[in-house]
């Protein structure tokens, strides 16, 4: 059986924290613990007219890829609530193909 993962399109991750909070509620985690956490790059000027200011949510060791939700046929809590619609869940081969097709600012996690 193929492994599942989380594909992040960080061109459109706005850093809204919804994945963090949706996950924290799903896993019922206490203060200081997160199942997914944002990393930030920038802001940084890369050329006179271009800026980099990116966010990438990184699943932690608490992430179980929302086993229970997925078993019920639902999307993981983070994916479902993502405001930027920047996350996708699925078999890594499929996600890797999507990643290659877009070819820009994508990252695939297999937590």
């Amino acid at each position: 059986m193929s492994r599942n993962g989380l594909l992040i399109d960080y061109e459109y991750c706005t850093g809204c924290h919804s994945c963090e909070v949706a996950c924290k509620k799903e896993l019922n985690l206490p203060v200081g613990k997160w199942g997914i956490k944002l990393a930030e790059v920038g802001p940084m000027q890369v050329s006179p007219d271009r800026w980099q200011m990116d966010y990438v949510p990184i699943p932690t060791e608490f992430c179980n890829l929302c086993e229970e939700r997925v078993a019920k046929g639902e999307a993981p809590a983070c994916v479902h609530h993502c405001l930027g619609k920047a996350m996708e869940y699925g078999p890594v081969e499929e996600l890797a193909a999507k990643m290659a097709a877009k070819g820009k600012k994508m990252v695939l996690f297999v937590p």
Binding site: C16, S18, V21, A22, K25, H80, H81, C82, L83, K85
Partner: peptide, 24 residues
């Protein structure tokens, strides 16, 4: 006990910000 974004809402389409996510 919990909240979930409503996927049938035509505008938000299941998405929620952290204020509604922490409603409970």
């Amino acid at each position: 006990v919990k909240v979930e974004g409503d996927p049938d809402h035509p505008i938000s389409q299941g998405r929620l910000c952290i204020r509604c996510l922490s409603l409970p």
